[in-house]
């Protein structure tokens, strides 16, 4: 990488010294300024290494396994999982963070893997729909989906079960309304929402009111 054109006419040393002094004088908040900047200015301008644009070695922790590949920086987590690591539970539908079919858990929280770079997911546990089955035994969430026929084409299902699992893991006593709210970011174009509601009611140990 080259850093020479990035300074807009300021030398790196001059900038770091300047910002360090101002930060030390104002000391507004928690964001570290003085110390780290001062150290850098004194340490011959330590540079932040760039990665890419060519392939970069990538190691991801997927469903408890360490997986390795090489991707360009522009490769999303979704594409890395599906196209590079053959983890195909997460689906590519809108690829714009609107439909939820690509939902995976990163650090236990549901995110759109289509809108996150694979490089941003390094060092974080990633869980996909594949984590909801052990051998022949299905997790309670996909099991409820199967029992209540909560899918038609099934393409959105991996995203829905992962999003639903996240709600119930965060709060095993979640109400039906809370589970439904946790699914706001997912779309089923076959419209099997009513059967999904049946599955949710069963998971919340509630009778469906009709």
């Amino acid at each position: 990488m080259s850093d020479s054109k990035d300074k807009g006419g300021l030398s790196r040393r001059g900038f770091l010294q300047g910002s360090g002094a101002v930060a030390a004088a104002t000391a507004l908040g928690t964001i570290p300024t003085g110390a780290s900047a001062g150290q850098q200015a004194g340490g011959n301008g330590q540079q932040v290494p760039g990665m890419g644009p060519n392939g970069v070695k990538l190691s991801l922790n997927v469903n408890g396994r360490s997986m390795n590949t090489t991707v360009e920086p522009r490769v999303t987590l979704l594409d890395a999982l599906r196209n590079y690591l053959d983890v195909t539970g997460c689906k590519r539908v809108c690829d714009r963070g609107s439909c939820g079919a690509c939902t995976v858990l990163v650090d236990g929280k549901p995110v759109y893997s289509c809108s996150m770079l694979a490089l941003e997911a390094r060092d974080k546990p990633i869980r996909t729909a594949e984590s909801l089955v052990a051998g022949a035994k299905l997790d309670a969430v996909p099991e409820a989906f199967a029992r209540f026929d909560a899918q038609q084409c099934g393409f959105c299902t991996p995203g829905f079960v992962v999003a639903m699992k996240a709600v119930l893991e965060a709060n095993p006593k979640a109400t039906q309304a809370e589970v439904e709210r946790g699914l706001c970011g997912n779309i089923c174009r076959c419209g099997t929402y009513e059967q999904m509601r049946d599955a949710i009611y069963s998971l919340c140990n509630q009778q469906r009111r009709t």
Binding site: P49, G50, P73
Partner: peptide, 9 residues
């Protein structure tokens, strides 16, 4: 494609 930087400060 792009070059990716991940500074810590």
């Amino acid at each position: 494609n792009f070059t990716y930087f991940r500074p810590t400060t």
